[in-house]
Each structure stands twice: as structure tokens, then as C-alpha cells.
């Protein structure tokens, strides 16, 4: 019973937090729209009002009959790995203009590959194979895109 109450409280807190965030965004849009020309202000103001209204409505519904709302999706799997992946993606994107597509891509491929959980034991051979696969894939994409499709991928400025 206690556990159920805790779940409902947690769900309610999440929904209210989400609603408050979007409500604040709506309020911000309403405020910022005042600086625009009269023709350009209508739509942001309308959207801001809509966000604010829906957020308030969601909070009211949440307090009145929260048990009817579907719970937010439960997280299964490792949150640490997810955070690690996001951090790696951020580092990759930041490093891209300095290291270029090929170097940054190869490094990112190898590191992300190593971060993926495996059913079998991790061995240095696996890591080496993944690194080779990553290098070949990245260079393959680079060749196809730059040489055949004429897409100028980011080049290194660091070296």
C-alpha cells in the first residue's frame, strides 16, 4: 500500500514538474512576444497562451484524477550507460570541427562500441575488431559522401 502511494506520488511529481516546465516556457513566450512587431507577435503569443493553458489544465487534472493518467514510461536498462552515451555524443559533436569527420568518427565509433553491453565477455580482440570495423565504416562513409555525392564533411582544423 505504501509502495503504491509512493508510486502515485512519484508519478504525480513527474507530471507536475513536466507541466510546470512547459507552463514556464509558455509564460516566457508570452513575455518575449511583446518585443516583436505587431504582425510577428500574434503566433508566439498564441502558442505561449496555449502552452500555459494546457499546462495549468494538466496540473488540475493531475490533482483531481491522477489515477486515470498513464504513468510515465519506466526506465529499463542502465541509466549510467545512457548518460555515458549522451556525454560521448556531446564530446564527439564538440570535437568534430577540430578533429574532422574521419578522426572524430573513428574515435567515437570505437569508444561507443566499447560502451555497449555485450552478452558475451568483453575481450581485447572484440575491442580491436570493433575499432577496425569503425575505422572502415567511417572511412567508407567519408569516401562515398565526399567523392561520389559531393557532400563536404567537416575537415580537421586542429592539425
Amino acid at each position: 500500500m505504501f509502495q503504491l502511494k509512493m508510486n502515485i506520488a512519484g508519478k504525480r511529481a513527474k507530471n507536475i514538474l513536466g507541466s510546470l516546465t512547459f507552463g514556464m516556457l509558455g509564460t516566457f513566450m508570452l513575455y518575449a512576444a511583446q518585443d516583436f512587431e505587431s504582425a510577428g507577435r500574434v503566433t508566439p503569443a498564441f502558442i505561449g497562451c496555449g502552452l500555459l493553458f494546457l499546462s495549468v489544465l494538466l496540473i488540475i487534472v493531475e490533482f483531481s484524477k491522477s489515477e486515470l493518467l498513464p504513468p510515465p514510461t519506466a526506465i529499463t536498462g542502465s541509466l549510467v550507460r545512457r548518460s555515458l552515451f549522451i556525454a560521448l555524443m556531446v564530446i564527439w559533436v564538440v570535437a568534430l570541427p577540430y578533429l574532422g569527420f574521419v578522426v572524430a568518427g573513428c574515435l567515437a565509433f570505437a569508444i561507443i562500441s566499447a560502451a555497449v553491453p555485450k552478452n558475451s565477455n568483453k575481450t581485447s580482440t572484440n575491442f580491436a575488431l570493433n575499432t577496425v570495423a569503425g575505422v572502415l565504416t567511417t572511412i567508407g562513409f567519408w569516401v562515398v559522401l565526399t567523392a561520389f555525392l559531393k557532400v563536404p564533411l567537416p575537415e580537421a582544423t586542429f592539425f
Binding site: 568534430l96 568518427g105 567515437a108 565509433f109 562500441s113 572484440n126 565504416t137 567511417t138 559522401l145 564533411l153
Partner: peptide, 14 residues
Amino acid sequence: KSYLVPMVALMLVI
């Protein structure tokens, strides 16, 4: 998955 995930990430960037 050790190949698919970085492959998907690479395709996202491209």
C-alpha cells in the same frame, strides 16, 4: 549491438 549503436550514431551525425 556493439556495431549497430555506433553505426546509428554515425548516421545521425551524417
